[in-house]
Computed example of a mutant assay.
Amino acid sequence: MKKGLVSIITPIYNGAKYVRETIDSVINQTYTNWEMIIVDDGSKDESANIVKEYARKDNRITLLQQANAGSASARNNGIRNAEGQYIALLDADDLWEPVFLASQLALMQKTGGIVVHASYKRINEKSEEILQPYIAKKIVTYKLMQMTNHIACLTGLYDTSKYGKIYLKEELKSIRDDYAYWLEIVSLAGRSYGNQDVLASYRVMSSSTTGKKKKLIKAQFFFYYRYQKLSLIRSLVYTGYWGVLGLSKFMK
């Protein structure tokens, strides 16, 4: 582990359209002690070639390639190869503000926490801002995390110094695996501290369909009932809570 180094883990699958913008948002960070491990999960487009182009110019950027196995597997591949004290997960179509790392590390130092998250805005396929920014809860406890994932994956930062590396649950088949990841970290840390500053941009794709949303509802319920092993009633109540919260995010 290299003290002070942030390992940024980015899985990519056919993400050539947006990955340049994502990498540029990392290169533009005011905090410069980072490594970016981009894991190509069997892409069939120009994703790997674009990353290689960046890696030739900046030795902080590394490309790993694997046969298609899903985002959880790709992230775990990156985490296994990470050398940093801190772990961040950034998807290949999302963006960070230039002060993201500096601000999150400052919040860690101020609170003494080992996990932090942040507020973020939503952007469309043209990188135009839509809706209102989502403002993070100042403190997220394990109990709150049991109800729903309050840590947007692109904003989380975890200090591995105390508990070591945490890996995603590949058995979840890349559905709710990020929720399980942050839930486990908060269970160890006790709480995550939320940055009120808007530090990232989450890309909302218009390709999201009603059918996919119905599948997510089922996955969310079983995450409570089978993965967390909550009672049937609590699982149903929490699924309803998750649904209402999700709707409210897209009504602002």
Rank of each mutant, 00 (worst) to 15 (best):
K121P: 00
T22W: 15
L105K: 11
Y18A: 04
N81P: 01
V116H: 05
E129C: 11
N59G: 09
H117D: 12
S103V: 05
D24A: 11
H117A: 13
L101A: 04
L63M: 06
E128L: 11
V99S: 13
D94H: 06
E97R: 14
N68F: 07
N124D: 15
H117S: 13
V116K: 06
T62A: 01
E97V: 08
I130K: 04
R60C: 14
I61Q: 04
A82P: 01
A55P: 00
F100V: 03
L131P: 00
A118E: 10
H117G: 09
S103M: 10
R56T: 06
P98V: 05
L95N: 04
K121T: 07
K110D: 11
S71Y: 13
Y13N: 00
A88R: 14
Q132I: 13
V116Y: 07
Q104F: 07
L90V: 02
K121N: 04
N14R: 10
E129M: 12
Q65W: 10
A74M: 05
N81Q: 14
Y120C: 03
E97Q: 14
N81D: 08
N14K: 12
A55T: 03
E35D: 15
Y18C: 02
L101V: 01
E53D: 13
R56F: 08
S25T: 11
T22C: 15
L63Q: 04
E46S: 15
Q85A: 09
G113C: 06
L101I: 04
S73E: 12
Q66E: 11
P98K: 10
M108T: 05
M36G: 00
L63D: 03
K17N: 07
A69S: 07
S73R: 11
Q132M: 14
I23H: 11
A16R: 15
G78Y: 01
I130V: 08
K44A: 02
G84I: 09
N28A: 09
L90A: 05
L131A: 07
M108F: 09
I27L: 13
Y31L: 10
A16K: 15
I123G: 00
D45M: 03
A69R: 01
K110V: 07
D41H: 04
A16W: 15
K17W: 06
T62D: 00
Y120A: 05
Y86A: 05
A16D: 14
I50Y: 13
M36R: 08
N76E: 05
V99T: 13
N81K: 15
T22R: 14
E21N: 07
I87F: 05
Q65Y: 09
E128H: 10
V99M: 14
I114L: 08
Y18F: 14
Y120V: 01
K126H: 13
I12K: 10
I130T: 02
R75W: 07
N68R: 12
L101W: 02
A92T: 02
R122W: 15
G15K: 03
E83F: 06
I79N: 01
R60W: 15
S119G: 02
G112F: 15
M108G: 05
Q65T: 12
K121H: 06
Q65N: 08
G70I: 07
M108W: 10
F100P: 00
N77M: 12
E46P: 00
D91M: 03
E125G: 04
Q65H: 09
V116A: 08
S119Q: 12
V39M: 06
R80M: 12
M36E: 07
N14H: 08
A106S: 13
T62V: 01
D24V: 12
I50V: 11
L64C: 03
L101H: 02
W96A: 02
E129L: 10
